[in-house]
Design a binder for these strands. Structure first.
Lengths: 237, 237
DNA sequence: GGGACGGTTCGACGGCCGTCGAAGCGACCC
DNA sequence: GGGTCGCTTCGACGGCCGTCGAACCGTCCC
């Protein structure tokens, strides 16, 4: 039984409270520097570095180096699912922990990324636009060297004629010259979501329709009842 | 952060290879005696008892005592989901382990329990019958003292007039005197599935329709393509 | 280039936990 | 009731791993 050893290895990673704190701090999809995670776990930089090394080796987190900072992220949606499954099993559920849990889940579902939508919702909308033939392209790649955390980048996505029509019909107001498409790699979903002027325009229109509402102080996005229905009908999400 | 400690406690439970072996052995929903689990984990009875005690205290397994045997089960569907999430993260996937994993998943989806259906499919069918008003009752309870593992028991479920009609229409042949309803508590789903003559009759009819096929030597049940469609249409499962 | 800063590596300390044999306990069998 | 069997408890041994300070390495800033 060679495969069994590995699942225990994953379990061992999750058996330490400090490591769990680190993972939970990353659970909403952010990328955080090692120092912040050390503070979050309440542990020295040396210890945190050791934990992060193990989490990385175990495939639970990934690193990006920017200057003298190293940003850590959850390695993918599987990790979020795993954390969710574990939280569901942790027997005592103090209120605060519950709120944190649902909040992280909500952020994974929908959040803002600067001026546009990210999370399952952002990715789902972009996927729908591509599937519906409103948006084409997407063979571009992300330059691993320069870009700061979670930022967008030029790629060869573009709206089709149908896409232009759809934008007008849906009520997204974009100056003709500003229809350049940008996207972000959405790390909680490991897929693309729209950014740039189009992403901002769509988010603005969704807010105008009162389908979604932005939290005043953070990146949370809530979907209204009307939004549930409208988003499902329009984008299948 | 009081809640965080507990999720690490769950992780610690999963950090031991022997405990993982035990959990994986139980992953298809069976109840196994401690001695069998000791053998499965490749460990002495004393050690296995220690592990089982911890798993029980952690809420991952439950015990039923029958005579001098003690049968252990996964505590519920959450545990199955957790194992699934962990397997999805264990990086190397030897073929055997993959086959085992998909097999366990298949058993959780559909299996036989003596002469009737269990697993998600069995539970889903029963739920549909109740929701559709074909079956009523179900306030009975399971006597914790006597019954052997996973066996059915009398309860006050009964078919309505519509239910009788439906049985005839669907092609389930039951002698009028043999319409007594029995059910099993389905432990992988923590819900009821039909047993008794009605459960057996429905399974027989599903086989006759070639919607499902029983494995010759074990409890596995596979759903055919026609079955996928028919079961969805008939029972919403 | 010097100094500060973020991060990792190294080494040593300490504690927790998995392990098994032996003993204890209850249930079954003849 | 004596013997067996299934399981748990106890106690002792041993190893693994989390922890931190100190040293080291690279980047940024003036």
């Amino acid at each position: 039984m060679p495969g069994d050893a590995d699942i225990a290895a994953v379990g061992a990673l999750l058996g330490d409270e400090r490591r769990c704190r680190i993972l939970l701090a990353l659970d909403d999809g952010r990328a955080l520097p090692a120092s912040r995670l050390a503070a979050e776990a309440g542990v020295s930089a040396a210890t945190a570095s050791s934990h992060l090394g193990k989490l990385r080796e175990g495939g639970l987190v990934t690193v990006e180096t920017h200057g003298r900072h190293r940003f850590y992220r959850l390695a993918g949606p599987h990790v979020g699912r795993l954390l969710e499954a574990m939280v569901a099993l942790a027997p005592p559920r103090p209120v605060t922990s519950l709120r944190e849990g649902t909040r992280a889940r909500a952020l994974r579902r929908a959040r803002t990324c600067y001026d546009h939508l990210a999370g399952e919702l952002g990715v789902g909308i972009m996927r729908h636009l591509v599937d519906a033939g409103l948006l084409t392209g997407g063979d571009g790649h992300r330059d691993p060297a320069d870009p700061p955390v979670g930022f967008g980048q030029d790629v060869d996505y573009r709206f089709t004629a149908d896409g232009d029509t759809w934008l007008d019909d849906f009520g997204v107001r974009l100056a003709p010259g500003r229809r350049t498409i940008r996207y972000c790699v959405d790390w909680t979903e490991q897929a693309h979501h729209l950014s740039g002027a189009a992403g901002a325009g769509i988010l603005a229109r969704l807010v105008e329709l009162d389908w979604v509402r932005r939290a005043p102080k953070d990146r949370a996005v809530t979907v209204t009842d009307a939004g549930q229905e409208g988003l499902a009908r329009t984008f299948g999400v």
